[in-house]
Design a protein around this nucleic acid. Structure first.
Lengths: 170, 170
DNA sequence: CCGTGGTAATTGACGTGTCAATTATGTGCA
DNA sequence: TGCACATAATTGACACGTCAATTACCACGG
C-alpha cells in the first residue's frame, strides 16, 4: 500500500482560501499605501530599515540581509528609489567594492508620512478583523509554516537537485 | 481621550510573521512548480480552469472572472502562454468582439504533468506542516480576513475617495 | 439609419521580481 | 609577487502586474 501524499478536497480548499486571502490582503495594503503616500511596500521596508539604522545609512548587503531580499532585487529597487530622490548611494571608505545606502531627506519625509496610515491599515484589515484567539492562532500558524519551510530548505541544500521527499520530518 | 488605532508591537510582529510567511510559502511553491514543470502559478490556474471547462475552451472574460483576474492581466498572460503553445485564441462566433481561449495539447500535457507534484508540494509545505487544529484555524482565519476585506470594499465603493474610517464595524 | 453609450479584449508604459552574467575589488596562499 | 578564489554590487533579459488608453464591436433610442 502507498501512503496518501495528496491533499483532500477540504484541505485544498483551505489552502486556496488561505493563500488567496493573504494575497488579497497584501494587495489591498499595497494599494492603500500607494494611493495615500505614493510609496510601494518595497519602498516602505527599505525606508523603515534605513531610518532605524545608525546614521540612517547602511551597507547595501546588510540592508538586503536585514529585510530578507536578494541583492539583485535590492539593487534594482534602489536604482528606482534613487531616481525619485528617496535615497542616495555613496562609496564605502573601508571597502571599495561596497556601497553605502543613505536615507535622503525626501525619503525620511515620505516614510514619516506613511507610517501612521500604514499601521492604521494593518490594524483595520488584520488585527481588528480577528479575535484575540485568532490573532494568536495566526502567530502559531506562521511559526509552524516557517519552521517547515526552514526544514525543507535545509534538506534541499543537502541533496542538491535530487528527488524531493514527502516532507515528513519524523 | 482618543481610541487606539495603531497596532501594538506584538500585534505588529504577528502581522509581519504572518504576511512574510505566506509570501515565503507562495514563493517556494512557485519556485518548485517552475523548476519541476516549467509552469508558473499563473499558468497553472489558467490551465486548471481551462481543463475543467466544457470543451476545454472558454470566453476570455469568463476565464478572468473564474480565476479572479483583471482582464488586462489575463490578456498579457495569455499572450505569453500562446507564444509557448499552451493555449490558442480563436474568434468567437456569437460575438465578434470576443475571443475563445482554447486549451492546446501542449497545455493539457503540461498541466497533467504538473498537478501531482504541485499538490504534493501543497501537502508537504502546508497541510502536513500543521496540526488538524491549526489547519482548521487557517480556514477560519482566511474567512475572517476575507470578510473584513469585503466589508471595507463595500464601504470604499459607497464613499468613493473619502476619508477612511477606523475599520470598526460595530 | 445613425449616433451614443456600453462591453470585449488588447496594448503600451512602467514598476516589480528572478536568474544568470558581469565588473570590480578583496584575500589568502604558493 | 602573482594567481586562484570569494565577495560586493550592478546589469541585462525577461516574466509578471497594474493602470490608463485604445480598438473593435454590440445595442438601443431617436
Amino acid at each position: 500500500m502507498t501512503k496518501r501524499t495528496l491533499p483532500t478536497t477540504d484541505e485544498l480548499r483551505i489552502w486556496r482560501d488561505f493563500i488567496e486571502t493573504a494575497d488579497a490582503l497584501r494587495a489591498e495594503l499595497a494599494s492603500r499605501l500607494q494611493s495615500e503616500t505614493s510609496l510601494s511596500p518595497g519602498d516602505y521596508v527599505v525606508l523603515l530599515a534605513l531610518s532605524e539604522a545608525p546614521d540612517r545609512r547602511m551597507r547595501s548587503s546588510e540592508l538586503a540581509a536585514g529585510i530578507g531580499w536578494e541583492r539583485s532585487r535590492l539593487s534594482h529597487h534602489l536604482g528606482r528609489m534613487e531616481k525619485r530622490g528617496l535615497i542616495r548611494r555613496e562609496e564605502c571608505a573601508s571597502d571599495n567594492r561596497g556601497a553605502e545606502i543613505v536615507l535622503a531627506e525626501a525619503g525620511a519625509t515620505a516614510f514619516h508620512g506613511a507610517t501612521v496610515p500604514h499601521l492604521r491599515a494593518v490594524r483595520e484589515l488584520f488585527v481588528a478583523a480577528l479575535t484575540p484567539e485568532q490573532l494568536a492562532a495566526a502567530g502559531e500558524l506562521a511559526a509552524a509554516l516557517r519552521h517547515r519551510l526552514e526544514v525543507v530548505a535545509e534538506l534541499g541544500e543537502q541533496f542538491e537537485g535530487e528527488e524531493r521527499g514527502t516532507g515528513r520530518v519524523h
